[in-house]
Amino acid sequence: MTVVRTTLPPDMETEEMLSRYLEEDLDHDERAVVETLLQERPDIRAELESLRQTLSLMQRLPSLEAPSDFVQKVKRKVRRQKRTRVDQQPQFRMPYEILGIIVVILMLVLYLLIQQHDTSSSKKPMPQPRASLQPRPPTPAASRDRFVPKTNTTAPTSKPFSSPSSP
C-alpha cells in the first residue's frame, strides 16, 4: 500500500519547494503536494509566478562579448609575464638533489676538519703562556725586596743599614 503525503517534508521551505518544482526536481509525492497547495493557496500561486518571472528576466539578460582584440591583449600579457619570470630566474639553477649532496659533503669535510683539529691539539704539549702577558712568578729576591723599605734612590748610600758604630 502506498502512502501519499499531503504535507511538505518538514525541512523543506515553500520557496525551496517552488524552486525545485520549476526545476522538475521533486519526486512524485512532493510534486502532488505542491500541486495541491497551488490549487488551494493563492499566495503560493503568486509566489510561484513571481519566481517564474524573476528567472525569466535573468535568463534574458543580454550576453556580453569580449572586445575584438581580446586574444591579442591576453597574448601580450602572457608574453610580458613570461619575460618577467625569465628575468627573475637566477642565471644558474642547480637541481635540489645535487645541492643536497654538496651540502652533505661540505658538512662531512667540516666535521673531519674539526675532528683532526681536536686530535692534533690533544697530542701537543700545553702551550706556554706568553711571558709578556703573564705575571712573572715572584723570585726569592723580589719577594725579599717587597719587604725592604724604600730608600732614596737619588742619593745612594753605600751602607744603608750599617750601624754608626761600625767602621
Binding site: 524552486s19 519566481l51 524573476t54 528567472l55
Partner: peptide
Amino acid sequence: KSRLHRARSALRQQM
C-alpha cells in the same frame, strides 16, 4: 541545490 534555492528566493523577494 539548497544554496541555489535560497539565492532564487532572495532575488525574488528583492525583485
